[in-house]
């Protein structure tokens, strides 16, 4: 494996670490599509930064996008907490409106400039080794640095700082509140952290891979695990496995790297659906067969 391939696999794996940890909570809270919503909702932030500064430089654009993304998830959370709309409808109410605002902004003020999501913040993991940043005299790929930082901060936040409040408020919200664990605050912090990771990752590896990493490994881990900690570890493991196998397959068949890694996560999910102990389809069919055989053997003496 050459250096570029190593950078791509490490970037994808580190991103999968951050996304798997946050995504597990989002999947359990039935808010899995939040990352997809944020990928569209950030457009007005990009337009606003472009209007104010006239630039499409990476840092202010990502900052503006993150701010609007955070506004989107806080709006969604406020809507959900009215109890009048469910989580899925609340997500679907916030992001089309923000995306529409962005489209209107582009057509009104920036129609001359080439400004859309693809050029502004959607990166491409294939080019991750090419965009470098000088750190202490070394040329470090920016995406690797950013996703590594995101992974470390996410692990610190979720596992060290917020573990008990998040665990309680995800699995048993009422207990979380009664026990004084500030579950609602933890929920908001989780949403804001997910948004920040998502926007930063869009810039590094592109949107579809981020959405896949947030949802699919966590959904696969949900089928395999019976405990929250195990689920988080399995989600991260599925992400890394997909990064390695997806990158290998993409190079072998000469296709899109992010597309193939995304597909690899889905293959993992299908395997989990078939083979998961107790919950997998094949496992269940096998248990049923074993049960039927025992019954026959016992009562008909075959």
């Amino acid at each position: 494996m050459n250096l570029d391939a190593l950078v791509i696999v490490l970037t994808a794996g580190l991103l999968a670490t951050a996304c798997g940890v946050l995504g597990s909570f989002l999947v359990l809270r039935r808010q899995a599509l939040m990352s997809d919503a944020v990928s569209h909702a950030v457009l007005p932030g990009i337009v606003l930064v472009f209007l104010l500064t006239g630039s499409r430089a990476a840092l202010p654009t990502v900052l503006g996008a993150t701010l609007v993304g955070v506004a989107c998830v806080l709006g969604f959370e406020a809507l959900r907490r009215t109890g009048l709309v469910r989580a899925d409808a609340a997500i679907a109410l916030t992001f089309p409106a923000l995306f529409s605002l962005g489209v209107i902004g582009v057509s009104k003020f920036a129609s001359g400039a080439h400004l859309d999501l693809d050029t502004a913040i959607y990166g491409e993991i294939t080019f991750a080794p090419l965009r470098t940043l000088a750190v202490a005299g070394l040329d470090v790929p920016r995406s690797l640095l950013v996703t590594g930082l995101a992974a470390v901060l996410t692990l610190l936040l979720v596992v060290v700082v917020l573990w008990r409040p998040l665990q309680a408020s995800t699995l048993d919200p009422q207990f979380g509140e009664i026990a004084g664990l500030r579950g609602q605050l933890a929920q908001r912090v989780l949403l804001v952290a997910s948004t920040a990771v998502a926007v930063v990752a869009f810039d590094s590896v592109g949107a579809i891979l981020v959405v896949a990493f947030f949802v699919v490994p966590a959904a696969a881990a949900h089928l395999l695990a019976t405990r929250l900690a195990t689920m988080l570890i399995l989600a991260v493991a599925v992400g890394w496995a997909s990064a390695v196998t997806g990158h290998w397959a993409a190079v072998h068949y000469d296709t899109s790297i992010s597309g193939t890694i995304g597909l690899a996560t889905v293959v993992c999910f299908v395997l989990a659906r078939l083979l998961a102990p107790r919950r997998g389809l094949l496992w269940r069919a096998w248990r049923r067969q074993v049960g039927a055989d025992r019954f026959t053997a016992r009562w008909y003496d075959v």
């Binding site: 709309v85 109410l93 529409s100 489209v103 209107i104 009104k108």
Partner: peptide, 25 residues
């Protein structure tokens, strides 16, 4: 203005208005 986004914004406004103003709920 572009037609699609304007329709989306109007529909969102209708949804938000109903969340605020619906009788009983």
């Amino acid at each position: 203005l572009p037609t699609g986004p304007v329709i989306v914004l109007l529909a969102t406004a209708a949804a938000l208005a109903s969340i605020l103003l619906a009788p009983r709920r």
